[in-house]
Design a protein around this nucleic acid. Structure first.
Length: 585
RNA sequence: GGACCCGUAGCUCAGCUGGAUAGAGCGCUUGGCUUCGAACCAAGAGGUCGGGGGUUCGAAUCCCUCCGGGUCUACCA
């Protein structure tokens, strides 16, 4: 065993080797190496317990055998012990901690270490995917920031990532928009603020369809006309798309969100007849109440709840286009994995989509990619209900982001009035946008979360300001010492960590790969957030306990080394999450 | 009715595919700046992990059941 980037994996390998030598059945032994509670060591292996249990063996005795068979170099790097019912604990020697920390000296080095996690896999990530002609609001932000973070993380870990913004540019809302445009357009308002006017038309028509069935029929007719290629409706459609995409781009730029493709629903329009035909000929789809639907008899609910792939009026819906999208991503992009980000309320739809796709691809002999519906909960107000403005409308994303920056500016000005205003503005932008972003990432995406300005802008706790503050403190040390953080000469001659605070920080540093692995395997960025927060915490404790710039050259070098790598991991991690870091704040 | 998500300290949340004495932050109590940034750090109090069964060496985690909250459930996405 050498001190590799991913020590847990090295230990896993060593344990598997030892297990074979000790006479275990290798295919049924999984070492289960994980980061340990610091009280017990750096890593622990729990797999012996399960193996012994299944065979009614004494787990401690079995652990003894495995340890005795471990490759000899494991012992050079860590002390190994058995504890409790049969845990194997590994405590890295300070010299080995130093070796890892010294080696991980640049973002590129970290990336090359992380590459093995998802090397060779091609991911299509579908995120943001707003509806055309509606403004982005607070409900869109979580998918945007989680999606961007997931893309960056997967790419960092070696995957080839294709980012696709699957814009809703073809659905029923266009029936409404076109009908509204034809009957109630206010030209002056359109010239002044196109999105406001389009939104007004949409709301007006939507309300009208609910009170007058004849309007609903008219709206549906407009959609059918559009989807069958009517020239007038097509021209209107193009105009509406152009107006709204400009507004999206503005926000994407502000939040540093990027796409390789924007293949909206309309892109799949000409591919739909083939889908209907295939699903019909394989027998998966059938006619019901005039619509083309798919039932899943083996499923408790979807045996009676249909997946409607073509509406009774012949128009497409999002099941139609999503099926075409699955096919296109498989055949054209050759995706190994597809991840679609939407809020959890669409879980039914994606479960039906996947069940249908599995059967369809199986019956037609197509390769089946992995699929993950990366769902997430809603953002709630402090009253625990869906967050809204006083008038009951959703909060516009533009407004929310502007308020975040404004609030951060007030805080920055209070704490650092001596900085020039331009710099305070810059800091406020990074802190304000970072706070919104981090709040969306730090909590497990499965649950709803309660939005609170005071909480996300606090300098205490698991927040963006706390992490950015830690970064600026490390930078300050180097600035005061007249050094660059990545200056190798400042850290040459570093001795292994010694004091409790040094050791605790060193041990947190080496756990970075575990956090990356968890995050990208489960597509849950909060694992990385938790890790970075704990790292910043260990740094703060270390900083309070030990003076870094001391006279003794070797002590100074080893503490500067710890600072340098803390900075590297914090900045790398925060950038992967999409946050901008600061030199001063 | 059915399905899915959630229920952990007063509040907001972690707890990594069953592991060691369940952890943070806020709030509360107390201590620490003439010393690299105190927007910080250290210490303390605070829990029947919604209730009840079960599976086993071991359960916040898995199974069953009940309670409470949310979401979805045929032509919106």
């Amino acid at each position: 065993m050498h001190v590799s980037f991913d020590i847990a994996s090295s230990l896993d390998q060593a344990l598997r080797t030892a297990a074979v030598a000790a006479g275990l059945e290798p295919e049924s032994f999984s070492p289960e190496v994980r980061a340990a509670d610091p009280r017990y060591g750096d890593f622990q292996a729990n797999g012996v317990l399960a193996y012994a249990k299944a065979r009614k063996l004494n787990p401690r005795a079995l652990a003894e055998h495995i340890i005795a068979a471990l490759p000899s170099d494991v012992g050079e790097h860590c002390s190994v012990s058995i504890a409790g019912p049969g845990f194997i604990n590994f405590l890295l020697k300070p010299e080995s901690l130093l070796q890892w920390i010294t080696a991980q000296d640049t973002t590129e080095r970290l990336k090359s270490g992380a590459t093995s996690l998802h090397h060779g896999q091609k991911y299509v990530v579908d995120f943001s995917s707003p509806n055309t002609a509606k403004q982005l609001h607070v409900g869109h932000v979580r998918g945007m920031v989680i999606g961007e973070a997931i893309c960056r993380l997967l790419a960092f870990c070696g995957a080839e990532v294709i980012r696709d913004n699957h814009i809703g540019d073809w659905g029923t809302q266009f029936g409404k928009l076109i009908w509204g445009y034809k009957h109630h357009l206010d030209q002056a308002a359109l010239a002044k603020d196109p999105l406001e006017e389009l939104e007004r038309l949409y709301k007006l028509t939507d309300a009208a369809t609910k009170s007058a069935p004849s309007v609903l029929d008219a709206v549906r007719a407009e959609l059918v006309l559009l989807q069958s290629g009517d020239a007038e409706n097509l021209a209107l459609w193009k105009k509406i798309i152009a107006l709204s995409s400009g507004a999206f781009t503005e926000i994407y730029r502000l939040l540093d969100i990027h796409f390789d493709h924007q293949l909206g629903e309309s892109f799949y329009n000409d591919k739909l007849p083939a889908i209907y035909a295939e699903l019909g000929s394989t027998g998966l789809a059938s006619e019901s109440q005039g619509a083309l639907v798919v039932f899943h008899p083996e499923h408790p609910r979807f045996k009676t709840q249909p997946f409607i792939i073509r509406k009774s009026d012949g128009a497409a819906n999002y099941a139609s286009t999503d099926l075409a999208t699955m096919l296109y991503r498989t055949e054209h992009f050759h995706a190994d994995a597809i991840a679609i980000l939407t809020d959890a309320r669409q879980a039914d739809h994606f479960e039906q989509l996947w069940l249908t796709t599995e059967k369809w691809f199986m019956m037609t002999g197509r390769p089946l990619p992995r699929f993950t519906h990366v769902s997430f909960g809603s953002i709630l107000g402090e009253d625990g209900k869906a967050i809204k403005t006083r008038s009951g409308d959703p909060i516009k994303l533009k407004t929310l982001l502007a308020e975040a920056v404004d609030r951060a500016f007030v805080l920055v000005t209070a704490k650092a009035p001596e900085l020039p205003e331009s710099e305070r503005r810059e800091i406020a932008t990074a802190v304000g946008l970072g706070a919104i972003r981090y709040a969306d990432l730090a909590q497990n995406r499965s649950s709803d979360y309660i939005f609170s300005w005071d909480k996300i802008l606090s300098f205490e706790g698991n927040t963006a300001p706390y992490l950015l503050y830690a970064v600026s403190r490390v930078r300050s040390i180097f600035r005061k010492a007249g050094l660059e953080p990545n200056d190798a000469s400042a850290v040459t001659g570093a001795t292994p960590p010694e004091s409790p605070a040094e050791l605790a920080l060193a041990r947190k540093l080496i756990a970075f790969p575990v956090a990356l692995k968890l995050t990208t395997e489960q597509l849950r960025p909060h694992f990385l957030c938790t890790y970075l927060y704990e790292l910043a915490g260990e740094f703060s404790s270390f900083y309070a306990a030990e003076k870094v710039v001391v006279d003794d050259a070797s002590i100074r070098a080893r503490r500067l080394l710890l600072c340098s790598r803390t900075l590297l991991l914090l900045e790398t991690g925060l950038h992967l999450l999409g946050l901008r870091t600061l030199v001063r704040m």
